[in-house]
């Protein structure tokens, strides 16, 4: 075996041993089990108090199950000095986080004076499995939850005091009965190949409620040449039966480069007057390069069943 590989293997063994020792030595700490940079390849179950300082990776093939009432605290570390905490959970395998109404699962900062961006995110990335999050509470993060190239069901959860509540890219995601409140950006999404369903959520008091972010990398080109007047998202993205209201700058922002119309019918926008609804939407009426948000017909009153059950 070449010398390089022998040295590398030695270093790897030491790395593993040190990591393991650190995890084991953290048992019994007041904040529960502490994980530093860690990757798991076997199934694991969390309950009680968990602390993370660094990146915790759920490897491909492994499932992380989180029991109701578990509190996960992320320590603020900022190795690249970008003022965003680096601690995160990265799921390449599978995440099953099923809290209950009485015992939600909490993801939050470990800092004494918690602030948005204290930690990065729970990132479900390129996971081949069905991920499931229910009655989870995300706060103090850069993005509470990010779902990219993955499948996830997110329901009855709360996203608050984050830079972004939830962000997703090319994902198959069902998001229902959540409360997204007091974030800089409530829901942010890109790469809209879907299918995505956003229903029965309350999205309020964020700086921007829902924002679309363009991508130059869409692989599936479902925009036929010359296609006009027909919303691009039919069959791909459903945003319906939500209460999206009283967000500070805009309830909906089509961002930039979204030149196709967006169907977003059947939602409550905080008022029954269409001119006031339009005021809170950034679309073609403000930038001719953008598509139009087709928000009519809209709900005349708030949907009582929206939000966590």
């Amino acid at each position: 075996m070449p010398k390089f590989f022998r040295l590398f293997s030695l270093w790897a063994t030491i790395y593993f041993l040190l990591s393991s020792v650190f995890i084991i030595s953290a048992y019994g700490d007041e904040e529960g089990i502490l994980y530093t940079d860690t990757i798991i390849h076997e199934d694991m179950t969390w309950s009680g108090n968990i602390a993370i300082r660094g990146i915790f990776v759920v490897g491909r093939g492994a499932t992380l199950t989180i029991k109701p009432g578990t509190i996960i605290r992320f320590h603020k570390i900022d190795t690249n000095n970008d003022h965003i905490g680096d601690s995160e959970i990265r799921v390449l395998g599978r995440l099953l986080a099923g809290g209950t109404k009485e015992k939600p699962i909490t993801f939050q900062s470990a800092e004494k004076n918690p602030k948005p961006k204290d930690w990065s995110y729970v990132l479900i990335f390129s996971s081949a499995e069905k991920n499931f999050l229910k009655y989870c509470y995300f706060r103090d993060a850069f993005s509470g939850l990010q779902v990219q190239f993955s499948t996830a069901t997110v329901s009855d959860s709360v996203f608050t005091h984050n830079n972004e509540g939830i962000r997703f890219g090319r994902a198959k995601i069902t998001m229902s009965h959540n409360l997204v409140k007091n974030n800089n950006l409530g829901v942010r999404f890109t790469r809209m190949e879907g299918p995505v369903e956003i229903t029965n959520n309350i999205i309020t008091q964020n700086r921007v409620g829902v924002i679309l972010v363009p991508s130059n990398q869409n692989i599936v080109d479902f925009f036929e040449p010359g296609r006009t007047g027909k919303p691009w998202n039919e069959g791909h993205l459903l945003i319906e039966s939500n209460n999206i209201f009283e967000n500070i700058d805009y309830n909906l922002n089509l961002g930039t480069k979204q030149k196709w119309d967006l169907a977003i019918k059947g939602n409550w926008w905080g008022t029954g007057q269409s001119n006031l609804i339009q005021e809170q939407i950034f679309d073609k009426l403000r930038d001719i390069e953008l598509g139009k948000a087709i928000y009519k017909p809209f709900l005349e009153k708030p949907l009582a069943t929206a939000g966590p059950r």
Binding site: S9, F16, H41, G54, I55, V57, F125, T190
Partner: peptide
């Protein structure tokens, strides 16, 4: 295995995040 760990843990962010 170790290469996978190093790659995963050393990356601060993926392009789309």
């Amino acid at each position: 295995l170790t290469l996978a760990i190093v790659l995963l843990l050393s990356a601060n962010s993926f392009a789309c995040v």
